[in-house]
Nucleic acid binder design. Structure first.
Lengths: 356, 356
DNA sequence: CATTGATATGAATCCTACG
DNA sequence: ACGTAGGATTCATATCAAT
């Protein structure tokens, strides 16, 4: 039995999760019921009724019942996650403390809790609390020592070249993005904005990765996954949502740009100093210079360098010159070619290109 | 045995909480240990050591031990809270899901989870996650149906006359506000900014209320409480923090301004229509007008009004005129005096002033 | 067509004092 | 405790009608 990629499975979340293979998905996004516990009706200040979440799927009898439900779907999620997969779960104050507690107990390791701050959240009509203007996302690995995908440079680039933060300002899903039925009413009461899924999938998955959403709804996860060249598996109980999701995803084209293909995440080639000496890119006995030529050291045949006192790796020597603990020697040292300074780092790329 | 106000108690949090009276405090702010589980040293990229939370009081053996600790101090907090008191607890992703789960299980009712978003948070030096740029506060009552203090208008006024939100942008405690020892190092590793406590105490307490902080540290809660004309009780295990806190609070002056005294929260005088008729502010049989004089109704001797069809309260009649469910009739209706329109609401204030 | 104004609506634990 | 009457309360954005 194998998972079928790019499909939507109609059925109970826990039952269908159980049918998926062990360690078969790279990323999970889960948007479970929040168990809002609202009673009666809420009126706007003009007297009209606010249409919140009144769906049956959000009703539970008690915290115990809700906890038990969450324990079970989270346990199955953990089972189907590949060793180095990660999982995102979204919730609000009504349920996120249940979720977080259970996830930690199951051994999930929280990498970040991310705040989705909504500039256009529903106000508090009666002036009795602070406006609830955010939701919370938990981003976790299977366990404490799991590796995981994080496209740091991509996220930094998209955040104006500043390290991206745990607080995200994203508008709620309204306007033409919000899917409406023939009656003009929203099809799903809690459709998530594509921008939110975009950040999630782009930051924590690779091209062609498999993204699972056990509460698929109208398929925002599938739509964004397809657009970004990732594969999706969705589980959804209600056929009316699946019909809409299928139509929606069909229209989406898979056309990731270079950034979305993670061109910024390509690591420098792993080529050692000795390899460059063997292939005549560097010569034993020649001088390595700092960019301002104020610091000089000599290349030894074992790949180390000496300043006349210490014999160190290029990294430790550059750190010594900079009076710090650690530094990347590849970025620091230059050699002279035709009387011009050339970064030793360029030779790593030249070697790789010539050896293809 | 009575609680002593404006004191700092030196001792174990749970033991000292147990000595406090039932239902004796109006507000609690708690900043418990975070259970950071840092192993080894975290180094900045330049090799200098990053001073994080490594103090002894932050070490626990397991979630179980931490959960048990939190259950016990939270249970005591609930006991000492007055019926309509509220409690704020701050934490980060390492511990807030333990706290929230336990609080819900203890019957606390979450009013808001508030995000303290830090524009100048410590960056993620290793570029392996999103920068953790926020902490989370849980604001709760003792139980679902508890009343509580929320100075809505004051917070709205201070937020540019917009309803205040659950996401607060506040800088971390640095510069002259950060208390340093004679060695120039910070005295407490997690000193909270006064602006954070200002919002907490001002939004959810009244003048002269008693504010309890069971993890008093260097006394930010006490300092802000005193400044705002509230009383404080602090519990702190470490004498070195208490010494600093005492010095600090001694220098603070109690001088709340009008806003901080909650002048904006004063409710309009409760004077009924019949009282105004009895005292000749309004006359039975006279007309009440909407501001544009397009709607008219007649005042009856039972305090109700009639538009010739229905006999309703001023509130229901104004709502009928506005085609809505509810409206405040005091703001809607005017009478004619010397051929000018006068709001009937002004008579309530006049009556109150004349009867003092 | 551009601008202005009215209306609709979004994951919501949404009143309170008095009899 | 519980029911009832009094009366206090909304932000950002999209859409559509009117000018």
């Amino acid at each position: 039995m194998g998972n079928i990629e790019n499909t939507i499975i109609c059925g109970d979340c826990i039952e269908e999760l159980k049918k998926l293979k062990n360690e078969s998905v790279d990323l999970i996004f889960a948007d479970p019921p929040y168990f809002m516990q609202t009673e009666g009706e809420l009126l706007r200040t003009n007297g009209t009724k606010f249409l919140g979440v009144e769906d049956l799927w959000d009703k539970f009898d008690s915290y115990d019942e809700y906890d038990n439900f969450c324990f079970n779907w989270l346990k199955e999620c953990k089972r189907v996650m590949k060793k180095n997969a990660s999982i995102w779960v979204i919730g609000s104050f009504q349920n996120i403390y249940r979720i977080g507690f259970i996830m930690q107990n199951l051994g999930f390791w929280i990498l970040n809790d991310v705040v989705w701050s909504k500039p256009n959240a529903v106000p508090n009509f009666s002036g009795t609390r602070f406006q609830n203007s955010h939701e919370t996302l938990l981003w976790c690995t299977k366990s404490k020592n799991s590796k995981y995908t994080f496209n740091y440079k991509t996220m930094k680039y998209l955040n104006g070249n500043k390290q991206d933060k745990s607080v995200w300002d994203i508008s709620i899903c309204i306007g033409s993005e919000r899917i409406k039925g023939s009656d003009g009413k929203k099809v799903h009461s809690t459709q998530k904005p594509e921008k939110l899924l975009y950040k999630i999938i782009l930051s924590s998955s690779k091209l062609n990765d498999i993204v699972l959403d056990p509460f698929f709804g109208t398929g925002t996860t599938g739509a964004v996954a397809k657009k970004l060249g990732r594969k999706y598996i969705g589980i959804e109980k209600e056929k009316k949502y699946i019909d809409v999701a299928k139509m929606r995803i069909k229209k989406i084209k898979c056309e990731p740009n270079e950034i979305e293909k993670l061109s910024m995440e390509i690591k420098p080639p792993k080529v050692g100093i000795l390899k460059l000496i063997d292939n005549n890119y560097l010569k034993v006995g020649e001088n390595l210079y700092s960019k301002d030529e104020n610091k000089i050291c000599k290349l030894l045949k074992n790949g180390y360098v000496t300043d006349g006192i210490d014999e160190l790796s290029i990294h430790k020597m550059s750190a010594k010159f900079l009076s710090t603990n650690n530094h990347n020697g590849w970025d620091y040292f230059y050699v002279k070619r035709l009387n011009k300074l050339v970064s030793i780092d360029t030779f790593r790329y030249e070697f790789m290109e010539n050896s293809i």
